[in-house]
Design a protein around this nucleic acid. Structure first.
Lengths: 102, 102
DNA sequence: GCGTCTATATATAATGG
DNA sequence: TCCATTATATATAGACG
């Protein structure tokens, strides 16, 4: 969807990979949100950039259940969260919150 | 993106809501997959239709962490999963599916 | 409900500042 | 390294079988 057609394979150039990530992530989240609204669906979306930054969306409507395949993800999340909590200090709290927020 | 422009609000007609769900879900998953490949990102996507059917995608690469806002989701998943396991029998498959449905 | 078919809306690749 | 633009690729609304 652009001036040229691209193959779906890892973009080698780090810069353009970052640019594409930014654009497509934005589009993906937009569509996730639209789906949840239009179709009254529960949607949970988690994205980690290759640099480890977290982005999330979750429609908060009724009941959302995670799929089995995400079990490991949940486990890792729990671990990370615990680590996070352990190393968290009062002043680091805000920083971490911001980090998680974007 | 079609013959006409639509507002982003819940589609009242159940039939067209289902049709739209099917189409957009497909597109969303495709884009989730593309993002993960193109940008070497970790992506986890969970969708529950309004009728309770589950759809998922998770790139299995490196580190995927769930966002804070998904905590309740995880909890619910865990609960449901436990229930599922407890009541599951070979012949109870269908029943379990119903359980997950809502 | 599900696949196919367009016309049109949107997303976005490439580019320029 | 970001914004803004814009040409093009893609997604999809609406219609039909």
């Amino acid at each position: 969807m652009g001036r040229g057609k691209i193959e779906i394979k890892r973009i080698d150039n780090a810069t353009s990979r970052q640019v594409t990530f930014s654009k497509r992530r934005s589009g993906l989240f937009k569509k996730a949100r639209e789906l949840s609204i239009l179709c009254d669906a529960e949607v949970g979306l988690v994205v980690f950039s290759s640099t480890g930054r977290l982005y999330e969306f979750a429609s908060t409507r009724k009941k959302l259940i995670l799929p089995t395949s995400m079990k490991s993800v949940i486990e890792r999340y729990t671990e990370a969260k615990e680590e996070h909590m352990q190393t968290m200090s009062a002043s680091a709290e805000a920083k971490a919150a911001m980090l998680l927020r974007n």
